[in-house]
Computed example of a mutant assay.
Amino acid sequence: MNRLLPFLAIVLSLSCYSCKKPTSFDYKDVKNIKVESFGLSTSKVSMDLVFVNPNSFGLTLKNVDCDIYIDSNYLGKFVLDTMMSIPKAAEFTLPASMQVDMKGLFKNSLSILFNKEVTLGAKGTTRVGKGGFYVTIPFNYQGKQKINF
């Protein structure tokens, strides 16, 4: 029994080292913005969000739930409830579709038309994991996004 304790201590320390908590993904770009349906109160917009996984291990993305803002005005809610495999230390694209609150977009319409960039914000949570163990990671992104018409 006394010989087994050092072996168990080594195994436990190695397993704890390999179970490092994942860090949130780094936003890189948005591409392929398309208006799928247009309405006066809401519209459906799809796009590809480009991220980088800074973790030295691959992950499974299980859920994303966030609010999107343009120049601090609420634009809409993005929810993704599909499992997706994310490679380690690599760039990946997340297809996104969301309902846009047109009132929020109309508030920003003049600044969007006359400025070449807007402040894009996203605040929410993502659920990621590995080997069946998942954790919820909060994120709060805010940055300048170029708008090309």
Rank of each mutant, 00 (worst) to 15 (best):
Met47His: 02
Phe139Lys: 01
Pro22Arg: 05
Lys146His: 04
Asn32Glu: 07
Thr23Arg: 12
Ala90Asp: 15
Tyr141His: 07
Asp29Asn: 15
Asp29Tyr: 04
Tyr134Asn: 02
Asn32Gln: 10
Met84Trp: 07
Gly131Cys: 05
Ser109Val: 12
Leu4Gln: 14
Ser13Gln: 14
Gln142Thr: 12
Lys21Glu: 13
Ser109Cys: 07
Asp67Asn: 10
Ser15Glu: 12
Phe133Pro: 02
Leu105Ile: 02
Gln142Asn: 11
Val50Ile: 14
Pro87Phe: 12
Val118Ser: 01
Gly39Asn: 06
Asp71Trp: 01
Asn108Trp: 01
Asn73Thr: 08
Ala96Lys: 02
Ile10Asp: 11
Leu110Asp: 01
Thr42Ser: 11
Ser13Arg: 14
Met83Tyr: 09
Tyr17Thr: 12
Asn73Phe: 03
Gly39Ala: 05
Thr119Gly: 02
Val45Met: 00
Asp71Thr: 06
Pro87Glu: 13
Phe139Ala: 02
Gln99Val: 07
Phe106Leu: 13
Ser56Gln: 11
Asn108Glu: 08
Asn108Gly: 01
Gln145Met: 10
Ser109Lys: 09
Val100Pro: 00
Lys116Ser: 07
Cys16Leu: 15
Lys20Glu: 14
Phe139Gln: 02
Asn63Arg: 12
Cys16Thr: 12
Gly131Ser: 06
Leu5Gln: 15
Lys130Trp: 05
Pro95Ala: 09
Asp81Leu: 11
Asn2Tyr: 15
Leu94Ala: 09
Lys62Val: 06
Lys116Glu: 04
Lys103Ser: 13
Glu117Asn: 13
Phe57Asn: 09
Lys107Asp: 05
Asp71Gln: 07
Asp29Cys: 04
Thr82Pro: 05
